[in-house]
Each structure stands twice: as C-alpha cells, then as structure tokens.
Design a protein around this nucleic acid. Structure first.
Lengths: 139, 139
DNA sequence: CTGTGTGCAAACACTTTGCAGGTGT
DNA sequence: ACACCTGCAAAGTGTTTGCACACAG
C-alpha cells in the first residue's frame, strides 16, 4: 500500500506492519472504530498492548481523533477527505452520528457545528456534536 | 432533607441513606459528577459496588443523565431547574461545557441545540453538544 | 547506530455478578 | 410480607507499565 506509507510518513509515524494494517482498516471503514473492534479484526495477530500504543500514537500524531460518546468505549476515526491532509492539526469540529441499531458511529463531515450562544464567561474552543438516531442502512 | 425525599419519591427510588447523600451531592454541585468523584466525596462510607448500582438506578429512573465526553470516564448530572421536574423523561438536548483547566463539566441548560442539516437517510433522534474550552472560574 | 516499536509478563484499575442478610414501604 | 437495597467476595474486563529484544530510519 503506497498510500498508507505516505500517510504514515506525513504524520511522522514509523512504517511498521501493525500501523499499516490499522491504517488500512481505518481507510476501508466508513464508521468509527473502537479498540475492541480493531482487535477482533486483527485476529490476535498483534499484541493487545501494541494496539493500545498504536492508537495512542495515531491520536497524538493527529492521524485520528477520539469521538465523544456516552458509552464506556472510546472510538477513533480518521477524518474523511481533506481532514487528514496537509494541516497536521485536526479540526474535529464536525458532527458525529451514532446509530442506535447497528451501534456504528459515522463522521458527518458535511455537518459543521452551527452557531449558537454560549453563556457569558465561558470561552469555547472546540465543539463536538453527537447525534443519536438511525442510520441509512438500518432504516 | 425534605427536598431529597420528595425527589426520590418522584422517581420511584427508595429512600435510603446512600441515595439521599448522593442526591445531595448532585444538588449541591453545579458540575457533572463522575463515579470516582462521588466515591472520594463519600469517603468509603459505602461500598463501591453499591455506588455503581445507585448511579445505574438514578440513570434508569431518569433522575440523572449520562454526559458524553471523549475521556474514559463517564459523568452524570442532574438537569437543572425544571428538567428533573414533572416530566419523568429527560430531555438531554442541551449543551455541555467542559473546562480544559479544571476538567469540570457544566450543563448549559440555556443553550439548546440549534438546527442543522442532517444528511439524507439519517434519522436523528437526540442531540448532544459538547463544548470544550475554559470556564468562568478558570478564565 | 540510535531511537523507537513490539511482545510478554505482570500490575493495576474499572465494572459486573451472585449471594446472604438487612431495610423501606 | 415482600420486594428491593446493601455489602462482601470473586470474577471478568479494560488499560498501563517495565523490560528485553527487534527493527526502521
């Protein structure tokens, strides 16, 4: 995978097998991935600890972002399109959609966070919008 | 505490010591509480397991709601004002604000979720807006 | 060659479950 | 009286740390 290599380089991540594979998983999937899901997909090919560290490295480099949800599990996603492009700083300011039925979380890159009024005194820096509902496929 | 008793009754929760105390904690605090925080406050007065079950009961009865965040820990909050009033169904459709410095999460009851466009095919049911930034006190 | 990544073992932290006894209504 | 709540013990699950070795740059 040429593309994977290039992406890893851009984020100053070393080109190792597990990183290439996990990156491929992210690229091939249109919803957010949890540690658990990835582990299952990788079928014990790698150590669980390494997976933790890989996800951490991906997050810290800015390759993926963590998605807020009200469950116990954390999910990660690549931003689509130009988000993981030149600007090494992620703008996570788009909405996320979580399907009640299939439990998958999608980035709604087209949905920016709309303007709204914040009470006096609070300085807002970043917004995350989580929408719960039913997705296309489950409808 | 007269008020506590009344609230517990309204949510069909039995009037036990731990429930009264935890409810008081929620009433006395203007930010969201995590299991950990409550446990510390209660100073080993009750079993940790009971605390888990109490929070679960509070959540299921609709007394508190779970707040989405991108950390590992889950936080709970009473809705302010009329939210934990007559309607036993919570509307969590208000924004939450998390301070980067003090790490506290506040309900911004005054901030409703604004309208925005959801892509075709997705059926939205509930919205949660998380705002990260710096709060009044830490500014 | 050097610094970083990986796998293994173990520790640690978090959450759930089952059961016996106690308590609210 | 009955259903529900609590505490304890234990199991189950998730996450982190330290270390030795391997590997990418």
């Amino acid at each position: 995978m040429e593309k994977n290599l290039e992406i890893l380089q851009r984020y100053k991540l070393r080109n190792t097998e597990i990183r290439r594979e996990i990156l491929s998983l992210f690229l091939d999937t249109d919803y957010a991935l949890s540690h658990q899901y990835i582990e299952k997909k990788l079928e014990a090919k790698f150590d669980r600890v390494t997976l933790y560290r890989t996800l951490k490295a991906f997050e810290e480099s800015g390759l993926v972002h963590r998605i807020a949800n009200d469950k116990e599990t954390i999910e990660y996603a690549l931003c689509k399109d130009d988000c993981h492009a030149e600007n090494h700083k992620h703008s996570d300011n788009h909405a996320h959609f979580r399907c009640e039925i299939c439990q998958k979380t999608y980035c709604l890159d087209s949905v920016g966070i709309p303007d709204f009024h914040i009470p006096m005194g609070f300085k807002a820096k970043e917004f995350q919008l989580l929408v719960n509902g039913i997705c296309e496929k489950c409808a």
